[in-house]
Deep mutational scan, measured.
Amino acid sequence: MQRVNMIMAESPGLITICLLGYLLSAECTVFLDHENANKILNRPKRYNSGKLEEFVQGNLERECMEEKCSFEEAREVFENTERTTEFWKQYVDGDQCESNPCLNGGSCKDDINSYECWCPFGFEGKNCELDVTCNIKNGRCEQFCKNSADNKVVCSCTEGYRLAENQKSCEPAVPFPCGRVSVSQTSKLTRAETVFPDVDYVNSTEAETILDNITQSTQSFNDFTRVVGGEDAKPGQFPWQVVLNGKVDAFCGGSIVNEKWIVTAAHCVETGVKITVVAGEHNIEETEHTEQKRNVIRIIPHHNYNAAINKYNHDIALLELDEPLVLNSYVTPICIADKEYTNIFLKFGSGYVSGWGRVFHKGRSALVLQYLRVPLVDRATCLRSTKFTIYNNMFCAGFHEGGRDSCQGDSGGPHVTEVEGTSFLTGIISWGEECAMKGKYGIYTKVSRYVNWIKEKTKLT
């Protein structure tokens, strides 16, 4: 034993070699072989497995989906700052455009905790909710729209109204504003409101030439003092309507412009014939205590009207009353817009006519005020429907199939267009061939041609 100890002390290297040989010859039971080890760690190889990531292109799944990435790591994937920024906006807080917040056709661009709407022409605001041009839906104005110097929408209202708090709607500024039905039992019968379409306001006024200088022999019209197929109006439903009495009662109609003036057809009036105007009328054979009678003290036909040349060209006249009318729910003026808007309103496509005229061709006159909704007829169809001249200051309205029309005794009465609950004068009943005849239409004086003249002559002093 002493000898062994001496050998170990003198030859430590020998001992180490012996131990190493023993270990190498022993069977290893701690580690699995290569094949079995792979069965336990069965993990798919990654895209760049075996390579240094710093030297390969980034992978979106590896960089940002398996674990949260930084902007720089995302930049490695896209290799483009702009594309990385677009991805980053949604990656950080989701897609803010998912709810489609942009209105009126706006395009949404996502941002971090926010979004941006790219608005089409005519709109602005956070969600493109603000109209900035009158060309689109009248700028959301209830009545009139004008573009300011910086191309912003400025709404306005006709006389007797003021802008509401929203700067879009119009509200009454006087007790009985024009064009409004205020009798409670008839307010439910107000005709369907007309909503502004998209309009090209630059070209809204037709490029028409008034044929002022045409000389033409007097034409022989049949029954051209021209509501057939209409309905009984309720008291106060058309408070701007008046009836004219002269040699015979209810020979023509008219509309209240203001307390002192009536507008009617020029062919209705004769110099030297006494005319009485009755406002607030409903049943011409009954006294309903809503009527107001006034005498006409002055007749002003349009300066281009000449019955000797043509009885229905420039067929418009103004009547001055001896005493002002007292405005109330049964006696209310009709609204008159400017030339541009009167023309736009007419193009809405349908209007209402009213009167006490004959209820059928050569038949009896109506006792109760009649009204009828009539569609506008395109000019080409209008011209083809008659052998008589249709001037540019006239328009056609009615039904091709016949059966409904204005008729004798309705002449001078109103053709009105309702705009968001307020009625505007767009025409004056003038003439036609018979009444409600198939293929024939009622012919009306186009008020847009005469609004400046009306307003100039009827100013209240």
Rank of each mutant, 00 (worst) to 15 (best):
N258D: 04
C69S: 04
L376V: 07
K152P: 07
L163W: 01
K347W: 04
C155A: 00
F424T: 00
V353T: 09
G403R: 05
L321A: 01
H314A: 06
S204H: 10
D198F: 09
D200I: 12
E61H: 15
R404S: 14
E434P: 06
L19N: 02
N42A: 12
F144Q: 02
F87S: 15
Q90H: 14
Y47G: 15
T461W: 08
V451G: 04
V353D: 01
S114Q: 11
G253I: 09
N328E: 02
N42V: 13
A164Q: 07
F221H: 12
E27L: 03
L376I: 12
E76P: 15
K274Q: 08
W240H: 02
K39H: 12
K387Y: 06
H314F: 07
N104D: 01
G363S: 12
S156P: 00
S156M: 09
N213W: 05
K168W: 09
L321H: 00
Y115L: 01
L189Q: 09
G105R: 04
I136D: 08
T158V: 12
G94L: 09
K446P: 03
A317T: 03
V228E: 10
L325W: 04
T271P: 12
C335F: 00
R384T: 13
Q216V: 13
F196I: 11
D131F: 12
K274S: 08
C117E: 01
I429G: 12
N100F: 07
N113R: 10
V202C: 05
E86S: 15
F238W: 09
N113V: 05
D315T: 02
C102Y: 00
G357L: 07
L41C: 04
T215A: 11
M6D: 08
Y201A: 12
L376M: 14
R46F: 07
L24A: 09
V278M: 07
I309Y: 06
L130C: 04
N59D: 08
Q219I: 11
L41Q: 15
E456Y: 10
A337T: 03
I334D: 00
A397W: 01
C69D: 04
R180C: 03
L20D: 02
P175Q: 06
E288I: 05
T84M: 04
S169E: 09
T133S: 14
V377G: 02
K68F: 05
V269S: 04
E124Q: 07
R62C: 02
I262F: 02
L23P: 03
P172C: 03
D249R: 09
K311T: 06
C108D: 00
H282I: 09
Y312F: 12
D200L: 10
V326P: 02
S430R: 02
P197D: 08
E67W: 03
V153D: 03
S329R: 12
F121W: 09
I262M: 01
T85K: 06
S204R: 12
T194Y: 13
K457E: 09
S406F: 15
N283C: 06
K362S: 09
S182P: 06
A279L: 01
F424M: 01
K455V: 07
K168E: 05
R140A: 08
N80Y: 05
K39C: 03
G13D: 04
P235S: 07
R191M: 12
T389C: 05
N245K: 13
K247E: 09
